[in-house]
Design a protein around this nucleic acid. Structure first.
Lengths: 262, 262
DNA sequence: CCACAGTACTTTATGCTGTAAGGAGTTGCA
DNA sequence: TGCAACTCCTTACAGCATAAAGTACTGTGG
């Protein structure tokens, strides 16, 4: 068997994720004052309210009346803690969707649930997807969406691709909204305040805006759903709207793929 | 890591972005040994190869034979530097697309160019979209895509929503691929090595995998486009494929919207 | 009962980060 | 020549993850 560098660490974090740490009741030394779940809960609370930027080992320790170093008794490192936060939080998402009313209804519900989940835990969108931690709830999340997508009757390859595409679309849109939420908290400035401040400066620095960007100017004028002064807001229009419209178009596209298999 | 745009001296950073800094040839004191563009170019080089995590004022200064503090003569802060990097880099993207062959051909080209752009500059995906810097090339990028989307004949509101949705979809998918690129460089471990190491551990820790996640197991077995041992790879299948498939479905959905206006 | 080993937790230290403050040296103009 | 403005440097500070070492506690074997 080939042994890869760092596999020992990886094995421990896998055990933590899948909650298969060995029993340790009869050991010498002081009793444990904390446990992994308590630490994870405290960390999630910090991340929920102040973003992953505010998540430090010191902050978590302080919240639990310990120093930062005390946490290392329970968790190998910060990145493992984040993996645990991620997987434990994913457990909140529903796993059962009624396929009776058809795949489209179920997939719409699922997408909306995912959307709401990201708004509840915006920091989740800042966790890298490149090397997933492979915890039980990450798999469960994927399994749930796949089960719905299979009901489209599309071939396995398409099911995989479109599940990924839908997932990334939702992530992308939610990320912008999540970052905006944190920006408001971090700067103490609402989007509206920020926009009106920038609008004025933009006019100063780019007086030829309408000639430079004619399509945008024309669209802003024609799009009555926004304020009259509509150059800057063009980037900022309701993200929820973007989500709903994009999702509808994507689902229409899937219907198309079902009707006319390539 | 997500980098937020700066909120310091907004007026000064706007002037920098729009290159409207006042002329300064006849001033006392030593000649300037650097300039903003040189600094931005050095910073982009660092971010391109090692990610935005490796971008520090010290690193940029060193690359130019200066200390970190020397940069503050030219740039108000790191976050303003990132704004400048972002806008200057966006200038690489094409702005002209032939609408002769129709909107779908143009939008496909545009999406592919954007995709390639993100692969060339993965760090761009780590720059927060919440409070955009509002530089000239950010607007130009939006203008270009809008011009194509307008050719669909859809109403202004839909043009705005679907442009945003398409943009976020591409960003989402590219982000995963970009993070994977950095992960390989940071860990010195290819995705394949990483996968086979984790596959074994997963089997140890979750021997009941197939019963727990039956849909995934069935799909893995049926999806002949991947390796036989196909549980873990399910998350990791070619991201480029996800991009192409998702894009096609999205464009199909737009065609549907054109044919049957709601 | 005592020595020891293993544990929980703390303190201290290292090398990073952005950037504030102050100082040294250079230059153009009055 | 003196001064003011300027570039760039050194130093300093707070905050970060975490390595290393120290302290206090507790169960077990002798």
């Amino acid at each position: 068997m080939v042994v890869f560098a760092g596999q020992g660490d990886a094995r421990r974090s896998m055990a933590l994720l899948w909650q298969q740490e060995p029993e340790n009741s009869l050991r010498p030394g002081p009793k444990q004052g904390l446990d992994v779940e308590t630490i994870v809960r405290a960390a999630v609370e910090i991340a929920d309210t102040d973003g992953i930027g505010a998540l430090s080992m010191r902050a978590v320790g302080e919240k639990l009346g310990r120093t930062a170093m005390a946490l290392y008794t329970y968790v190998p490192s910060k990145s493992e803690l984040v993996d645990l936060m991620y997987d434990r939080t994913l457990a909140e998402q529903p796993t059962e969707y009624d396929l009776g009313p058809g795949w489209r209804a179920a997939l719409t519900l699922r997408a909306n649930d995912t959307w709401d989940f990201y708004l509840r835990h915006p920091w989740v969108l800042q966790v890298s997807q490149a090397r997933p931690a492979l915890g039980p709830n990450e798999w469960a999340t994927l399994e749930t969406t796949l089960r719905i997508m299979v009901a489209t009757g599309l071939p396995p390859r398409s099911v995989r691709q479109l599940t990924g595409a839908l997932y990334q679309f939702i992530r992308g849109v939610a990320q912008t909204l999540a970052e905006a939420t944190y920006a408001v908290r971090a700067t103490g400035m609402s989007d509206e305040e920020w926009l009106s401040a920038r609008s004025g400066m933009l006019a100063e620095v780019a007086p030829d805006f309408a000639e430079r960007y004619p399509t945008m100017a024309a669209l802003s004028a024609a799009d009555s759903s926004g304020p009259a002064d509509a150059t800057v807001p063009y980037l900022q229009k309701s993200t929820t709207e973007t989500f709903r419209a994009g999702l509808a178009v994507f689902l229409d596209g899937i219907e198309q793929a079902i009707a006319q298999p390539s």
